[in-house]
């Protein structure tokens, strides 16, 4: 800032440039453009005008505040360095850094807000909209030149366009074809097959007397332990007898067991919580409730369909096995799922 001689303070600015008197005309109704309004008379501005004084009433005080803030920042940053050096805990690290940054910022804001010329200052703002003529000239140049260039070499233009179009199409191929396979039969069938043993997450096949009444366990087919789609809840609702959840399902629940897909039919969360008292399964994501005794029909919440039931049987050695896979797609719906029982296409 050595070069103060360069500009002169203009005691009275160009009177035609800016209106300084009185409140501005504001927006004159809807769509009013102040462009043609009469130019207000300018008041002379001198360098002694209050606009150029610093904004603080007590500049010394403001300076003190800013100085204190910078001092705090200095100590804070140093403290952060020390804390980092000593491998201090997260709390010390963060508090020193945070206080330092905040104080630094506070000092700077104080400086800018109270120790700079108070203003206000103004500058003109041109209209965005271009004039008819500006636009006509630009469009004329652009279009005419382009038109001449293209018309003279019409075939070139078409060829170039064709090449570009082919490029556009082929770039889609790798994008779409290598990102992942097309949806396949895994949309309709899980890894449950006829005869698959019900296996717990620690790889143990479940036997008929492993679970007490009221007990619940997550099971998988033995070849897909941990599988996200084949996960199934196995519940023992009674000690003996078949659990019948609906017509045609008379044999699906042997020895008091029922098994349902654990994937919520709403948005796919694991239906994790079994409330023995009410015989309900709860999905913790959006609180859908499924009634265990009536085939896991949804009784509350947004889930639209029952959890598909896995038909079970007990083999000669007492292992629980699947009679077959699920008879409909498990989990949330999708466009190609088909009608209400989602017959696989």
């Amino acid at each position: 800032m050595s070069d103060t001689t360069e500009g002169q303070v203009h005691g009275a600015p160009d009177p035609g440039a800016q209106g300084l008197g009185g409140p501005g005309p504001g927006e004159q109704g809807h769509g009013g453009e102040p462009a043609g309004a009469a130019v207000p008379v300018a008041t002379p501005v001198s360098i002694g005008s209050p606009q150029f004084a610093v904004a603080a009433r007590h500049p010394r005080r403001a300076e003190g505040v800013a100085a204190f803030a910078f001092l705090v920042a200095l100590c804070g940053f140093a403290g952060f360095g020390a804390a980092y050096w000593q491998d201090a805990n997260n709390y010390l690290l963060g508090i020193s850094l945070g206080v330092a940054f905040a104080a630094f910022g506070f000092g700077l804001v104080t400086w800018g807000k109270y120790l700079m010329p108070r203003g206000p200052f103004e500058e003109p703002r041109p209209q965005m909209a271009t004039t008819e003529r500006e636009r006509a000239e630009f469009v004329g140049d652009f279009a005419t030149r382009g038109k001449i260039a293209i018309e003279r070499r019409g075939a070139l233009g078409k060829l170039m366009g064709a090449a570009g179009a082919v490029l556009g199409v082929v770039t889609l191929f790798p994008l779409v074809r290598s990102l992942g396979p097309k949806p396949d039969s895994s949309m309709y069938h899980t890894k449950w097959r006829k005869g698959a043993r019900l296996t717990s997450i620690d790889n143990r096949p479940v036997k008929v007397d492993d679970i007490e009444v009221g007990g619940v366990i997550t099971v998988f087919p033995e070849n897909d332990v941990g599988g996200a789609l084949s996960q199934t809840v196995l519940i023992r609702v009674q000690a003996t007898g078949n659990v019948v959840t609906g017509p045609g399902k008379e044999t699906w629940g042997p020895d008091g067991y029922v098994a349902y897909s654990k994937v919520c039919t709403h948005a796919g969360c694991p239906v994790g919580l079994y409330q023995e008292l009410t015989q309900q399964l709860l999905c913790p994501c959006h609180q859908s409730l499924f009634d265990v005794e009536t085939g896991a029909t949804p009784v509350f919440g947004p889930a639209p369909r029952p959890l598909p039931q896995l038909p079970l049987y007990v083999d000669a050695k007492g292992y629980l096995r699947a009679q077959a896979g699920f008879d409909e797609p498990i989990g949330p719906g999708f466009w190609y799922r088909g009608g209400s029982n989602g017959s696989p296409q």
Binding site: H10, P13, A17, L20, V45, A55, P117, P120, F121, E123
Partner: peptide, 27 residues
């Protein structure tokens, strides 16, 4: 205060001339 068109004044000399003693700004 009325706004001052900044294009027409030299903020540098104005700031340099403004000693803190004569500061009469508003709070």
């Amino acid at each position: 205060l009325d706004p001052v068109p900044l294009d027409h004044v030299d903020l540098v000399s104005a700031m340099a001339a403004d000693g803190d003693e004569q500061a009469e700004g508003v709070y």
